[in-house]
Computed example of a mutant assay.
Amino acid sequence: MKVAIYGQNYVKETTQKAVEQLLDVLLDKKADVFFEREFLTTQSSEIQNSSKVQIFDALDTSYDLLISVGGDGTILRAVTYVRDLGIPIVGINTGRLGFLATIQTEDIESALTEIFKGEYKISERSLLSVSTEPEHEDILKTNFALNEIAISRKNTTSMITVDTHLNDLYLTSYWADGLILSTPTGSTGYSLSCGGPVITPDAKSFALTPIAPHNLSARPLIIPDNTTVKLKVNGREDQFLMSLDSRIVTLSNTTTVTIEKANFVVKMVELLDETFLETLRKKLLWGEDRRN
């Protein structure tokens, strides 16, 4: 099996220990191991100089797995390597919450044993695709997001107005700090923090969630995932920010942003005993009560 390993490009003790354990398991299973170039530089000299470790700068369809070591943010960055190649992603959690990176460090050996036996399932996750008029060079390079695409104000404390159309029909103008369009995967992230709903990963829906709206009747809205969303920003400043997961670009107020469902999915590896509902209960502490 040909396996790529990706992680945070800064030194973190918990990540390094997880990588050491991960590498031992992979080599024991006779896997061909490739580290992302920058991530390898954060590892011990023993790993960096190992003849059993190779390097990748980009991925292709010859890879069987990509293993992400970190938190959910690390997986979001890993997706920019996987793109539309269909390589399944395994998330090992050395971060905090871990809705996507669900394998804990103490379970690395047992989890990989199950995966190498083929005892796992694939969760296909929808993505968002964005285009702008006029075109923006940075967006053309990586124009998709797994969690959300968010519009927000820049260089001002004043609110912005986000004119919003759904399938070319006018919805409303949000008077707010910004607006989030979230996938089901991203519904437990930024959108949730702004009062958006939790959406199960297999739902065919997206969520529009305003950020601190001043028009108090504005509420999160669930829309079908085949909807084309067009956004136009007005405000006191001439520019605004658009984020695609963790990537941020600055756009002019003359820009029209068009967002729709991407034409590919990301494949997340889940163990057979994992369910989204169980993850939801554990991560959000649903049902927990200190009185009991």
Rank of each mutant, 00 (worst) to 15 (best):
Asp60His: 02
Thr113His: 06
Glu124Phe: 03
Leu169Gln: 15
Asn9Ala: 01
Phe39Ile: 06
Tyr170Thr: 13
Thr132Cys: 11
Ala176Asp: 05
Lys232Ala: 08
Met268Val: 14
Pro134Glu: 04
Ala262Met: 06
Asp107Gln: 14
Arg153Ala: 00
Glu119Ser: 13
Leu244Val: 08
Arg37Gln: 11
Leu169Gly: 03
Ile139Asn: 07
Thr15Arg: 01
Glu237Gly: 07
Ala218Thr: 14
Leu192Asn: 05
Leu171Ser: 12
Ser123Phe: 02
Asp177His: 15
Leu128Glu: 10
Leu140Lys: 14
Arg290Met: 00
Ser182Tyr: 11
Val233Asn: 10
Trp286Arg: 03
Leu112Ile: 14
Val19Met: 05
Ser131Cys: 04
Arg281Gly: 04
Ala212Thr: 13
Met242Val: 15
Val11Pro: 02
Ser182Phe: 10
Leu171Asp: 03
Ser126Glu: 04
Gly95Pro: 06
Tyr63Phe: 15
Asp72Ser: 05
Leu40Ile: 03
Arg290Ser: 01
Ser129Arg: 12
Val249Lys: 08
Leu272Met: 14
Asp57Ala: 07
Lys2Ser: 05
Ser110Tyr: 12
Asp289Glu: 06
Val269Met: 02
Asp107Phe: 12
Thr132Gly: 04
Val266Ile: 15
Ile259Ser: 05
Thr61Gly: 00
Thr113Asp: 13
Leu100Gln: 09
Phe35Cys: 08
Phe116Gln: 05
Val3Ser: 07
Leu192Phe: 13
Phe34Tyr: 15
Thr258Met: 03
Tyr120Phe: 15
Tyr170Trp: 15
Asp60Asn: 15
Ser131Asp: 06
Thr142Glu: 09
Arg96Met: 03
Ser44Glu: 00
Thr164Gly: 08
Thr227Val: 13
Ile199Gly: 09
Thr15Asn: 03
Ile67Trp: 09
Leu221Asp: 07
Ser152Cys: 00
Lys154Met: 05
Lys204Phe: 04
Gln21Ile: 04
Ser62Ile: 04
Leu128Asn: 14
Ala58Phe: 04
Ala58Thr: 09
Glu237Met: 12
Thr250Arg: 08
Val69Glu: 01
Arg77Met: 01
Tyr174Ala: 05
Asp24Phe: 10
